[in-house]
């Protein structure tokens, strides 16, 4: 099963009630928010309603909100060569 990875890149401010409703039902509240929805005609119809505001790509597995957040985290800037407790860093 594949998924649409949908990101809101243009704001919905000032767009029609209907388009803002579609954004809300897709779960897109602010710009640069990414959501995953299964590939269905229903989702496709919703995407088409607000196609000027989104970027869409097809992915095999959806990421959770936590995983998206972790991906966006900048590098820590240091590497721990000899961790005091190896089992703690392995997690």
């Amino acid at each position: 099963m594949s998924f649409f990875k949908i990101t809101l890149i243009r704001s919905g401010i000032g767009m029609t009630e209907r388009q803002n409703g579609v954004l809300k039902s897709l779960g897109l509240r602010k710009r640069m928010k990414t959501v995953y929805h299964p590939v269905t005609p229903q989702t496709a119809g919703m995407i088409m309603k607000v196609k000027e505001l989104l970027t869409v790509s097809e992915v095999d597995t959806p990421l959770t909100q936590k995983e998206i957040h972790e991906k966006r985290r900048p590098p820590k800037g240091f590497i721990v060569e000899n961790p005091l407790r190896p089992e703690a860093t392995a997690e």
Binding site: S2, F4, V39, P41, A44, I47, M48, K51, L54, T55, V56, S57, E58
Partner: peptide
């Protein structure tokens, strides 16, 4: 975007 959506649907 339209092409991507269309391809994804066509695969299914």
């Amino acid at each position: 975007l339209v092409e991507c959506v269309d391809n994804a649907l066509a695969k299914q």
